[in-house]
């Protein structure tokens, strides 16, 4: 099993390298730093000097891949955009944003608020969604099931933004239960986080319930469930002890991939509620066209995804004896 995990870890390296090369190509080849500078400085009548200055301030004035002007061999390769901007990411050195602030520090500071929002959404969401799906599956082939599915389809047809806008309007603006947006550390955060968490859970209720329902139904139709019924077990026991246990395999593995992303936060929820997490950081960077931040977030995102894949493999070995012992 250890060999299996080590192999999966090693497999991650070429993927990260691939992502790195891809982003490098996208950010520095498709458009040159000159293009970026011109866009940032305004398009009309930009002097070449201004462009050169902009590039130099941000370290974009170096050659892309090979610095023939540099003295030593290491400098020839090291003193380049590729090394400075791409290779350094592997040690989580992201450099400065286009507005000059250190990206690494910013990310560290914003990780916690993101997590404070995303973790409750994840845990509460998983519990609520599984419960609902079990209920619907329990009443399969009845009107409850039918209307439950219809409700799910209707709920998943509503854009997440309307859940946020509607929730903010009803709960904050009309009923004044919680502040409409903002964030504070410590105990106070609960006040600010309650609404986004509720909305996060409800917003994904339709899609998740429907998906989990199909997992449950797939299991329910298997032979071992019939065996369990033949033992004289009640439908509830069958559902919880047999069906749930087996359906947890696809549910968990689907959910585990998402765990590392909890650090990334949710783009729109954070930005609508003014929570200073990584999600709103990303949105702001995109809006202000800060390429350095976007590039860093792409790398972090891929890194977390790969961690998620590894966790998935691990969780398989935990929940499925066929993989643990096979």
């Amino acid at each position: 099993m250890i060999a299996y995990i080590v192999r999966r870890t090693l497999y991650a390296i070429p993927i990260l390298i691939g992502v790195n090369l891809f982003t490098f190509a996208l950010f520095f080849w498709v458009n040159t730093p000159d293009d970026m500078a011109r866009m940032h400085l305004g398009l009309k009548r930009v002097t070449p000097e201004a462009i050169a200055k902009w590039k130099q301030e941000r370290g974009y004035d170096k050659p892309l891949l090979f610095n023939s002007g540099a003295p030593g061999a290491t400098e020839k390769l090291g003193d380049t955009i590729f090394f400075e901007k791409s290779i350094r990411m592997f040690v989580f050195d992201f450099g400065a944003a286009d507005d000059g602030r250190d990206i690494g520090r910013e990310i560290k500071a914003r990780m916690l608020p993101s997590l404070a929002l995303a973790l409750p959404v994840f845990v509460v969401g998983l519990l609520v969604h599984i419960t609902f799906a079990l209920l619907v599956a329990f009443f399969r082939a009845t009107y409850i099931d039918f209307w439950g599915v219809v409700l799910c389809v209707a709920m998943m047809s509503i854009s997440s933004m309307f859940y946020i806008i509607g929730g903010q309007y009803l709960i904050s603006k009309l009923w004044h239960l919680v502040p409409i947006s903002g964030f504070q550390g410590g105990v106070d955060s609960a006040k600010f986080l309650a609404l986004p968490v509720i909305i996060g859970v409800i917003g994904s209720l339709g899609a998740a319930t429907r998906l989990y329902r199909t997992f449950f139904l797939e299991e329910i139709n298997k032979d071992y469930v019939r065996t369990a019924r033949a033992k004289g077990l009640s439908e509830v026991t069958v559902l919880f002890k047999h069906v749930l246990k087996n359906a947890m395999i696809p549910i968990l593995t689907g959910a585990v991939v998402a765990i590392p992303f909890l650090f990334m936060g949710s783009l729109i929820t954070e930005s609508f509620f003014g929570i200073p997490g990584l999600g709103s950081y990303t949105v702001d960077a995109i809006r202000s066209q800060d390429f350095a931040v976007v590039r860093s977030m792409v790398f972090i995102g891929s890194f977390l995804y790969i961690v998620g894949l590894l966790l998935t493999d691990l969780s398989y070995t935990l929940v499925d004896p066929r993989i643990r012992l096979g």
Binding site: D223, Y224, R226, T227, A228, A230, K231, G232, K245, R322
Partner: peptide, 26 residues
């Protein structure tokens, strides 16, 4: 509910596919 008391106690059943008829995670 009463039928459940009969299944497994007074009438038991075995099936064709032993590979599929046992709960794989038990």
């Amino acid at each position: 509910a009463e039928m459940r008391n009969i299944r497994g106690r007074r009438i038991a059943m075995i099936f064709q596919e032993p590979m599929l008829s046992l709960n794989p995670v038990m």
